[in-house]
Design a protein around this nucleic acid. Sequence first.
DNA 1: CGGCGCCTTGACTTGCATCAAAAGTAGTGG
DNA 2: CCACTACTTTTGATGCAAGTCAAGGCGCCG
Lengths: 246, 246
Amino acid sequence: MYNPSLKQCHTSPQANCADCRLASICLPISLHIDDINKLDDIIQRGRPLNKTERAYYAGDKFRAVYALRSGSIKTVQVTPDGQEQVTGFYLPGEIIGMDGLAANHHTNSAIALETSAICEIPFSRLEELSAKIPNLQRRFFQLMSKEITQEQQLITLLGKNSADERIASLLLSISTRNHTRGLSAKEFYLPMSRSDMGNYLGLTIETVSRVLSRLHKQGIIALNKKHVNIEEMDTLKNTALVQMDA
Amino acid sequence: MYNPSLKQCHTSPQANCADCRLASICLPISLHIDDINKLDDIIQRGRPLNKTERAYYAGDKFRAVYALRSGSIKTVQVTPDGQEQVTGFYLPGEIIGMDGLAANHHTNSAIALETSAICEIPFSRLEELSAKIPNLQRRFFQLMSKEITQEQQLITLLGKNSADERIASLLLSISTRNHTRGLSAKEFYLPMSRSDMGNYLGLTIETVSRVLSRLHKQGIIALNKKHVNIEEMDTLKNTALVQMDA
DNA sequence: CGGCGCCTTGACTTGCATCAAAAGTAGTGG
DNA sequence: CCACTACTTTTGATGCAAGTCAAGGCGCCG
């Protein structure tokens, strides 16, 4: 069931962390209420991004990380020979921009897949605050570590798995992450194009389309453009072999 | 030129960070001398690992991260269906174990590829110290971010590049990392087996062997078992297209 | 010197890419 | 509201890079 309340979130830009429906999965996890308010003080909420607009560009000086409040975002790297590689898809409550820390400039661009709202968290302030709030420091270390382990799962997927397994894994990843957000694990929209899926999974657009059609014909998923309904969850999980988790 | 002094490093287990030849590329970068000594106080140096011994096992409770002092290490993930995926190769001065932070247990095993010495850095102490030394906190954030960006480069490599490009990229990665350590960029030993290389790059052992033979026949590299001499650096760089950096 | 891993090489197969074209969808302006 | 254009997706036919299967070589160690 597609939950339109998500769409509405970016219409209340003044919402603070303490009230935010996503607080339980976002940066503030495990913080005391007064620490949440301190965090809230440094967060900047701008106007929503329209589809194809960018939160930051590859090459931009690194100044902040961003929490996605609503919508969805892809991160994209440009290779030296000018090709684009999609490095991740992000859903509300997830943090983007941590790639910029190492070299002090972003190595990815973050592009909105639909109208999206983000909370900008200036990094220098976050650093100061982390030094004062041990749980926040710990939380941020954890978020980066989670990014690392997730990327390792993607590496495994790209290194070892067939086209069918890759697609099934991506569908299940989005399914479980939706579920974590109180949405349906069974029925959801894919915010990205076939081309983005293929790029992310190391497949051509034709292969993505063929695999999705096949899963549809086999009755494992119902598919209408970007709207997916997982009809046989167990079969899909068997196909995936590897569960990429949230 | 293979520099045997590297081999000797693990024979001086009492070395401290301030004296360590690797300090300029390891965790202590940009720390004041007294801060380095504080860091040094929490570091534990055990006996060297023999080949195939593990610094930690996947599933182990996360207690520490580890700086590699000498030798080389691979990190390996086990997929649900029992296959192994090599997720990284590590050289002296590099930090391993940051995968364990997110879930509070390691998701990889760290396996010595040859006799190797490591510095164990208990994480709870590192956290405390990071809160007191801003440069250390920053440095550790940077190391994790670097891990993220490097993995994204590997994802791109696996998603978009041919067998030749993957092998060339790995050779160049090891070359530049050796160079950073004051060793030759041109001539070096590959510490890992063909099987490890293939596993890491998403290729079969036969393909790795064929590509290396081809590079050899073309005169781009000289190859004797694990000993590599890059004869035509520019050609190799052209083959790689993408430079995976240190 | 014989057995066991690791690596190389060759012959054959196959999954996915490539090429091509048509159908579907969205956006724009008259 | 429809016509027109441009983009995305689907489907089909063909080709190729890398996988699989198989055999043999090399080095190491007891």
